[in-house]
């Protein structure tokens, strides 16, 4: 019984939140890695692209709510997603045409593009604050739980509850759909293959008659869509604050670098590695330990390896370990 309780506590506080957060990071990192593969720079504006898209989604959610439209037990934000994606895709395409394209034509060094993207990051950051302000926003509605703690306890007779929030279930399902769709697109469609070819060997892709402008545009649209979805899922699961999204940049980068920049599969693996490490290292293990260990060994402290303030240190440490021991990442990026 104690063992089952421990297992449920582990699932409830570590595995489920870790998987949800991991899915969000994976979607964010996929965008970063696709842009890196095709445009060959680390896009510092990605966190703020996520924030911008989420802000638009929130505005539409409010609009729908004011019209009395809802999505039954699911969050209304899912209905607003396409509008957020459209607006964000338009914004990044305009950014590309107005800003990045010039440097591409010049064949500027990647670091110049990184700096330019940092400039774009601050403009977007300011835009988001202008649009929606700096305060915390909660925009989750619909049913709160897919499985609530009391039902679980009553059904199993365990002392520990197992809770599955609707937002967590939505996150995982949406992430699976997105990843499957993305891989289908990259592996099976002509445009998807041309994107991979362009990322693999730009000169040869040009020789083969692949249109670079089209590849770049498609990449931006996909990256924007992934960013908006990742940002919205994160906001539903936790809450929306522009500054937090800026800080998401580091775990998202860490995930992309761990997997190997340019490798979509790596980005997904990286997302889960970073998220689970973060949760495992910042979780107070006292509860689980109390169930598993005999009373005589019961822990005094919280058994928390790192305070939650240091979440950022986890992504950073993973990043450093990867840079030290395998700079091209697990899946051999560029």
């Amino acid at each position: 019984m104690d063992f089952l309780n421990a297992l449920v506590a582990l699932l409830n506080f570590v595995v489920i939140p870790g998987v949800a957060y991991g899915s969000q990071l994976a979607l964010g990192a996929l965008g970063v890695t696709l842009i890196f593969g095709v445009l060959r720079f680390s896009n510092f504006a990605h966190g703020d692209t996520m924030a911008f898209g989420t802000a638009i989604v929130i505005m539409f959610t409010w609009l729908f709510q004011s019209w009395g439209i809802s999505f039954g037990p699911l969050p209304t934000a899912l209905l607003a997603l396409p509008f957020g994606i459209a607006a964000t895709a338009a914004l990044v395409l305009a950014t590309d045409a107005g800003i990045y394209k010039f440097y591409r034509r010049q064949k500027a060094a990647p670091i110049i593009l990184v700096i330019v993207s940092a400039g774009v990051m601050f403009v977007m950051n300011g835009l988001v604050r202008l649009i929606i302000g700096v305060e915390e926003r909660n925009f989750t509605d619909g049913a709160r739980f897919l499985l609530d703690g009391n039902t679980f306890k009553a059904a199993t007779g365990l002392a520990e509850p197992l809770v599955i929030k609707t937002t967590v279930a939505v996150t995982v399902v949406v992430a699976v759909i997105c990843v499957a769709a993305l891989f289908w697109f990259l592996q099976k469609t002509r445009t998807g293959k041309s994107m991979r070819a362009f990322s693999d060997n730009e000169d040869l892709a040009l020789l083969s008659g692949i249109n670079p402008d089209r590849v770049v545009q498609v990449t931006w649209i996909i990256a924007a869509a992934l960013a908006v979805i990742a940002g919205t899922l994160y906001g539903l699961d936790k809450s929306f604050r522009p500054f937090v999204y800026f800080q998401l940049l580091l775990p998202v980068f860490a995930a992309a670098v761990v997997g190997g920049l340019g490798s979509p599969l790596g980005a997904i693996a990286g997302g889960y590695i970073v998220a689970l490490s973060e949760v495992v290292l910042t979780y107070a293990w006292k509860k689980v330990a109390t169930y598993v260990l005999p009373d005589s060994l019961a822990p005094d402290g919280l058994m928390q390896l790192l305070s939650t303030d240091y979440k950022v240190a986890v992504s950073f440490s993973i990043l450093i370990i990867v840079l030290l021991f395998m700079p091209t990442g697990i899946f051999k990026g560029k």
Partner: peptide, 24 residues
């Protein structure tokens, strides 16, 4: 020591992280 000598992007990413950690 860690980030120099790799891709130029990595220094940018690593310094972003260390700065956040110092402030935290």
């Amino acid at each position: 020591k860690i980030a120099l000598g790799l891709r130029s992007d990595y220094l940018a990413i690593a310094t972003l992280g260390i700065a956040e950690i110092i402030v935290v």
